[in-house]
Design a protein around this nucleic acid. Structure first.
Lengths: 108, 108
DNA sequence: GATATAGTTCGATGAAAGTCGAATTAAACC
DNA sequence: GGTTTAATTCGACTTTCATCGAACTATATC
């Protein structure tokens, strides 16, 4: 398993990004990644089953919201901030600024 | 049928708004409403069945994206720009700025 | 090589959401 | 009151999407 392929910046679509964001768990992941440079899957797991999370990471990757860097057994995920800002200026700023305090799935 | 009730500005949620936007037809409607003060349902119909569109208007209304004003037999829809800007500053600016030229369902 | 660790893929299930014809409401107009 | 117009509601169908256990892959370590 060498690396994932991530969609090119130019090929990101607004609809795709909005779809990626339109789920409570994924939004939570995005909020978290908005506050740290990168995070492993495990660190975002909470009490949810791995397979569910893996699915959400895939959706986020395919919609262009995050990039996954593989190092050893660990997958380091980071927001594609620069790419998103370039393609959809102001969007992630607005989304991240709207983060509720103590965002914990229920408060979204 | 006097009037619809629209959710209060304070009760709008980011997730709700994102969900409202995460559909090609609804995004098209929102784009259109971003460029005109208001529009009747009929004027946004295109070639789609009325019942489908009615459903999308309902979703947009319930997520707080638009307001429907009834006048006679016609329903005038407008973006809740001020409310959205107040609650989620910059969000709609970013979304509307990302509108593809000639947005026509396929190009979203 | 065996084992542990991190994460994915598969496949089945269930729930949510979009589609659309037919019936319905409500106002406007003759 | 009957008809036209604008749009909704209902209900059935279909599709899409999330959930999650079990099996699997790949790396690291002993």
């Amino acid at each position: 398993m060498p690396e994932y392929d991530h969609p090119a910046t130019e090929s990101l679509t607004l609809l795709g990004v909005l779809r990626g964001l339109a789920d409570p768990i994924r939004l939570e992941i995005v909020f978290h990644l908005g506050s740290v440079p990168e995070a492993t899957c495990a660190s975002l797991l909470g009490s949810r089953p791995r397979s569910s999370m893996s699915h959400h990471f895939q959706v986020l990757r395919e919609s262009g919201l995050l990039r996954t860097r593989i190092q050893g057994v660990q997958h380091f995920n980071s927001l594609r901030r620069a790419d998103l800002d370039f393609r959809f200026p102001g969007l992630m700023d607005a989304v991240l600024a709207a983060r509720p305090h103590e965002a914990s799935a229920g408060t979204l």
